[in-house]
Amino acid sequence: MDQELAEVLRSGPFEQALRAAIRARGLSLDRLRSRLRERGVRVSLSSLSYWQRGRSRPERAASLAAVRELEEILALPDYALIGLLGPPRPRGGQPGREALTVLSHHEQVTVAADRTRLLARARMVLRATAPGADRYVVAHPPGTRLLHTEYCRLGRSRDDGTGARTLTELIFDHPLGPGETHVAEYSTAFSGPALRADEHLRHLRAPVDQHLVQVRFMGAHLPVRCFHTWSPDASAPPRDAGELRVDAFGTAHLVDTGARPGVRGIRWEWD
């Protein structure tokens, strides 16, 4: 793979990467359309032309499937082009409905003996409510970064526009059909002030059927108290909503069924 193509596949945008890949392989659009047709995928010349010029982008399930075939035909790594596509744009001037619902979101936070947060691991079960969903966007605050994923791969990251959070795509291996479920896992590391924060919060943008937060404290010295915290509005600081027990295994947990949108989590106090 030449350096120009490798660079544009890392940074995008999609149309530039597609143009560079087609040029590198020396294929005409007509030949590309024929190769797709041999694989049972029908895409018009005008669509291929619009995609590589940025006049439109593949969004529907059939178009996304065609992009996956293009990756193979153009000898690109899996998801090299899919990963450069942003979320589907709203149609008809109206906001698009959520393409995914969160059936469960379970996360465990490990706090070291020196009272720093070492790592957070999250596991989500997602269900598609519309065809073509191929990614989920997670938000994480300053001082945190996504380290590792399972059953998905990291896509693009960007600021949310307020400077308060970074949005990162988790990309699936294929677009989901309506009602189809997918499991995704990711790990988060902490740095700076976030490393020594005595709380772990999760901002839920939509209802979640089951939300579990578990904090595991390492070492002999455990917090003297733990609390469930909650705020219905991300702009307001969470307040204590009840005390939690630290068990004999050094863990405290919070579980909500039918969790409402808002900010919920666990905070702890040391002696």
Rank of each mutant, 00 (worst) to 15 (best):
P193C: 04
H203V: 14
A206R: 15
Q210W: 02
P178R: 03
L212Y: 05
R205A: 15
S191W: 07
D209P: 00
V213W: 03
F190D: 00
H228R: 13
T188Y: 02
P175Q: 04
A220Y: 06
P207Q: 14
Q210G: 07
L222W: 05
E185N: 06
A220I: 09
H174R: 12
L176Q: 02
E185W: 03
P193K: 05
E199Q: 12
R225D: 10
A206W: 09
L222Y: 02
A194Y: 02
H203M: 11
H200F: 14
D173V: 03
L212A: 11
E180D: 09
G192C: 13
R196W: 04
F227Q: 12
T188A: 11
T181L: 07
P178A: 05
P207C: 13
L204Y: 04
P223V: 10
R205Q: 12
M218W: 02
P178Q: 02
F217I: 07
S191H: 12
R202E: 08
D173S: 11
G179K: 00
A220K: 13
E199T: 06
L201T: 09
H174N: 01
F227Y: 12
T229Q: 12
P178S: 04
C226N: 05
R205F: 10
F190A: 01
Q210F: 04
A197T: 01
T229K: 09
V215G: 01
H221M: 10
H182Q: 14
T188P: 00
F190K: 04
G219Q: 10
E199F: 10
H211Q: 14
H174A: 10
G192T: 07
V208Y: 00
P178K: 05
F172G: 02
R216D: 07
L201Q: 06
H182V: 11
V208K: 00
S191Q: 09
H203F: 09
T229R: 15
G177H: 04
E180R: 08
H211Y: 14
H228T: 06
D198Y: 05
F172V: 03
M218I: 05
H228N: 10
P175E: 01
H182F: 08
R225T: 09
R216E: 11
R225I: 06
V208N: 00
